Simulated assay, not measured.
Amino acid sequence: MNGVVVDAIPSTNSMLLQISVATKGLPCYSIVPTISDFMIQSGWTRCFVRMSDVSWPAYLVYLMVYLVSVEFMIYWVHRELHDIKPLYKYLHATHHIYNKQNTLSPFAGLAFHPLDGVLQALPHVIALFLVPMHFKTHIFLVFLELLWTVNIHDCINAKLWPVMGAGYHTVHHITYCHNYGHFTIWMDWMFGTLCYPTEDDESKNM
């Protein structure tokens, strides 16, 4: 079938289940941006509204520090969701029932236990208390988070180093103990959990 391995295509039932799980979690997921917006509006965070409040060099430095902070925190939240057995059993296992190419799809990117989804989004909020951050940039990055988590579950490896693409994340779903990172592979490289996709992994997705 045009070079596509049929067994690597998610079934309709798998995708419908993922859509159902994701839909049930959406109200809970919306709590994080709602609360963060309230805290920003109340002046509790280090968020700033106008780009003119800081210089461009300062903005770029803050952005880099923010991204590194979020990357670090998401790595450890995700890793502990695996390492702490009750957290895995009662929260993260909901997402990891999709552990093969023929069960992974973009819909799996949002198919979490609601509390699991909240925990993995919290670093974006926590970082606002640590690093000065432009409000609209923060909102854009939260939106990018949504697109990203969908993208890394489509099993298509774009091979764009050092991006933590779908190839790496598919390995994570298969091995359970590698590639906990977020946008990049740096944290996995630093903490010894990086596992590169192999040619065999990629051939299964062709």
Rank of each mutant, 00 (worst) to 15 (best):
residue 9 I to V: 15
residue 123 P to V: 01
residue 46 R to M: 13
residue 192 G to M: 07
residue 191 F to K: 05
residue 91 L to H: 14
residue 156 I to V: 12
residue 168 Y to V: 01
residue 69 S to C: 02
residue 160 L to P: 14
residue 115 L to C: 07
residue 20 S to P: 15
residue 60 L to F: 06
residue 195 C to E: 02
residue 9 I to S: 12
residue 18 Q to E: 13
residue 45 T to L: 00
residue 21 V to K: 13
residue 22 A to T: 03
residue 75 Y to H: 06
residue 155 C to Y: 02
residue 45 T to V: 05
residue 172 H to G: 03
residue 128 L to F: 02
residue 140 F to R: 15
residue 168 Y to P: 00
residue 17 L to T: 14
residue 55 S to M: 05
residue 72 F to Y: 03
residue 154 D to S: 10
residue 67 L to T: 12
residue 199 E to S: 01
residue 164 M to D: 12
residue 48 F to V: 03
residue 5 V to H: 15
residue 179 N to E: 07
residue 72 F to H: 04
residue 47 C to S: 12
residue 172 H to S: 11
residue 1 M to K: 14
residue 62 Y to C: 02
residue 8 A to T: 12
residue 190 M to R: 04
residue 22 A to Q: 02
residue 132 P to G: 06
residue 135 F to A: 14
residue 200 D to A: 11
residue 4 V to I: 15
residue 103 T to A: 04
residue 113 H to Y: 04
residue 61 V to D: 09
residue 31 I to R: 11
residue 50 R to Q: 09
residue 165 G to D: 11
residue 53 D to L: 05
residue 52 S to Q: 13
residue 136 K to C: 10
residue 65 V to D: 03
residue 85 K to W: 11
residue 156 I to S: 05
residue 69 S to Y: 05
residue 31 I to K: 10
residue 160 L to G: 09
residue 150 V to I: 13
residue 71 E to P: 08
residue 150 V to K: 10
residue 185 I to W: 04
residue 61 V to Y: 04
residue 2 N to V: 14
residue 96 H to L: 12
residue 77 V to E: 09
residue 145 E to R: 12
residue 199 E to Y: 00
residue 121 A to P: 14
residue 181 G to P: 04
residue 114 P to I: 00
residue 57 P to R: 03
residue 27 P to I: 00
residue 65 V to T: 07
residue 114 P to W: 00
residue 7 D to V: 07
residue 159 K to I: 07
residue 124 H to I: 09
residue 115 L to E: 06
residue 58 A to Y: 10
residue 8 A to P: 14
residue 105 S to P: 05
residue 25 G to L: 03
residue 1 M to C: 13
residue 44 W to D: 08
residue 194 L to N: 01
residue 79 R to T: 00
residue 77 V to Y: 13
residue 46 R to A: 14
residue 22 A to H: 12
residue 180 Y to W: 04
residue 189 W to M: 08
residue 71 E to H: 09
residue 86 P to K: 08
residue 1 M to Y: 15
residue 74 I to F: 11
residue 117 G to L: 00
residue 63 L to I: 04
residue 100 K to M: 13
residue 38 F to K: 13
residue 184 T to P: 03
residue 69 S to A: 05
residue 169 H to P: 07
residue 187 M to Q: 04
residue 161 W to V: 01
residue 142 V to K: 05
residue 88 Y to V: 00
residue 38 F to A: 13
residue 194 L to I: 04
residue 177 C to A: 10
residue 32 V to R: 01
residue 132 P to M: 03
residue 76 W to I: 07
residue 133 M to R: 07
residue 204 K to Q: 03
residue 198 T to A: 02
residue 74 I to N: 13
residue 63 L to E: 09
residue 81 L to S: 00
